[in-house]
Design a protein around this nucleic acid. Sequence first.
DNA 1: CGTTTCTTCGTGAGTTAGTCACAGTTGGTC
DNA 2: GACCAACTGTGACTAACTCACGAAGAAACG
Lengths: 223, 223
Amino acid sequence: MGELPAWVDAFPELRDIEDPVWVDVANYATEAVLPPGSEVFHEGDVCRNYIFVLEGATRVYKAFESGREMVLYRVQAGETCSITTSVLLAGGLYPANAVTETECRAVLIPANDFHKVFDTCKGFRDYVCTVFGGRIRDLIMLLEAVTMRNVNVRLARWLLDNGSSAGLVEASHRELAFELGTAREVISRHLREFQKNGWVALSRKNIELLDIKALLELVGGYR
Amino acid sequence: MGELPAWVDAFPELRDIEDPVWVDVANYATEAVLPPGSEVFHEGDVCRNYIFVLEGATRVYKAFESGREMVLYRVQAGETCSITTSVLLAGGLYPANAVTETECRAVLIPANDFHKVFDTCKGFRDYVCTVFGGRIRDLIMLLEAVTMRNVNVRLARWLLDNGSSAGLVEASHRELAFELGTAREVISRHLREFQKNGWVALSRKNIELLDIKALLELVGGYR
DNA sequence: CGTTTCTTCGTGAGTTAGTCACAGTTGGTC
DNA sequence: GACCAACTGTGACTAACTCACGAAGAAACG
């Protein structure tokens, strides 16, 4: 009878579930396209939907009282947001913010439907729990990164992880500070240091990785 | 037929569930008593049991590569451990450590049984998810505390929160550093500063809060 | 009781990170 | 071209962390 809609193909763990409740909810779900920079949720909001991201990337971050902000993680295509899951399962209000970085195509499942499927459909439940549980480990690792105060190491790692295959990073110092939970000036100084060493070339909103080997060596022990 | 064992009374949300699977598992569960200082789990362990703490308190902490350690949270009587939940639901290995601080009485539910009840019994599932979801918020708050680097404010808050009604805190500087994720010397210096101000009196492993009003004022804006 | 050992606590010197204030640069827009 | 906004560079200062060492107290042991 019911067939799963095409968007579920992006989620292998959910594609083969034949539970009619799930099929029904999946078909009823609304699809949305958000332009880059849209606010997906904001601290203090109530949560109305479970969100599957089909295309694009969304940044989840916490704004601290001091005015500093820090990226907690990203939700990429084919993923779901753990904080949303947490709020749906445990109740309460959103404890962080999320903004689309690129244009995002997403599917929204109303909270009621989410709970209905979660209660009846083991496959769906397993998926949700797995994604959710994995994020606690990520947060603990983030905690480790923040308490260990080698910003230069973390910066080098970030550049290596996020540079294009050609060794290019398009990001302002402010954005990098935001990523690493530190201050813009600190990033500027470390980048200048890298530049002095001949490891990178700097221009406006642009960092070229010249000596990847040296950067890797700096990152060295820190995985 | 089956009755729930007495220990479930410590968990109001679970006491009224009549699901036979749950009743069965609850009765089959083994009770354990751990002396203070026992290791409950260790980073890298696989998880074999879901744990209900009936009496006592357990400290869950992360040991960083730098040698520093940091308390993530405590599991008190009547609670369960979110990291254990996370590992059971998402798989993988324990990402942190736990040690009993006082003698602990606990009930262990084998992983298989946990999954069985989790799948069949909505009441149990709701309980597990609620406890679990709440901890993400705690971790984010911890992240905020660590990045905002007013150790004196955090120290004052900790002393106020954890002092006895008589205003006494029994803890070494090393333990306090551990609690706040900072270095022992930093704690020592701030305490000496507090002492100079006449806010506390210091002796070995012992801090007496003399001027609670002043400490509260220092904590002030920070909730 | 005296000696040894372990933990706690105090402190100074040097390094790294964060804050504040301000100035120079670049790119886009009208 | 003028203007505005965002990006970048820098100096001075403060806070926190690290390292190194020493002193004082508690516990263990003969």
